[in-house]
Amino acid sequence: MTTLTALCTLVAVGILLIILIYIALQGIGSLSFRFLVDSPRPVGEGGGIGNAISGTLVLLGLSAAIGLPFGIAVGIYLSEFGSGKFGSLVRFLTDTLTGIPSIVTGVFVYTIVVVPLKHFSALAGGIALALIMVPIVARTTEEMIKLVPHSLREGALALGAPQWRTTLGVVIPAAASGIATGAMLAIARISGETAPLLFTAFGSRFFSYYLDQPIASLTVQIYNYAISPYDEWHAQAWAATLVLMTMILSINIVVRFFTRKRF
């Protein structure tokens, strides 16, 4: 029996390694400094993913600016005041929203942001990603605050601190590294999202920093190149994937390294 279960595990780990190694081997060929800073060009003229990298960073920054404070606030509410019926409702909704397909979030943001503004925009993309981020951040924040020993909280209250100072000055700092971990993992998660960006941020073949204009992203560019009929673009898709995976895996590994002692 142990052989069988070990085999299952081996299959899963094997697939992971095959995928990662394949990406590294395929991607490294087209990777160069020019590729990282250039914007896309017509087939046969090279071109790069500089605009996609900068676009992804803009989108991540925007969604973090909206999603992190919002998510952390919901998380603090759940841990500090969430014991009642309303708290249970919020907790249930955040948990269920985590499982809503990201494409549905994209459709939702399309109807409430893109339609009123009349065109695709980086802002819409950022909002879509933020909406995906909020439930994840909220739940990890709540879990991390729950790990803070009760005696710390009681100590602060016994010294006469009001509740808000106890939470902000004592409890949150004690849970800060955990909350930061959750935030980083949420950013890693949304940096790989494609579906919600297709009809919000849409994509662009140029460098753009305007929030009311369509903007490129690594994932959408990978998708467009992957389904194109050109071998050169396929090669570029692999190279862009290598860049994206390097980013996501390093966030995951760094986070794991820093939280090793806790878990």
């Binding site: 395929q26 994206l244 995951n252």
Partner: peptide, 23 residues
């Protein structure tokens, strides 16, 4: 091993798609 299996969940959907088409 738990960490490696979790990494499988960290691979973006579009990357699975790319791998799916070509491998």
């Amino acid at each position: 091993v738990t960490f490696l299996i979790e990494l499988l969940a960290a691979i973006p959907s579009v990357v699975y798609g790319l791998w799916g088409i070509f491998v």
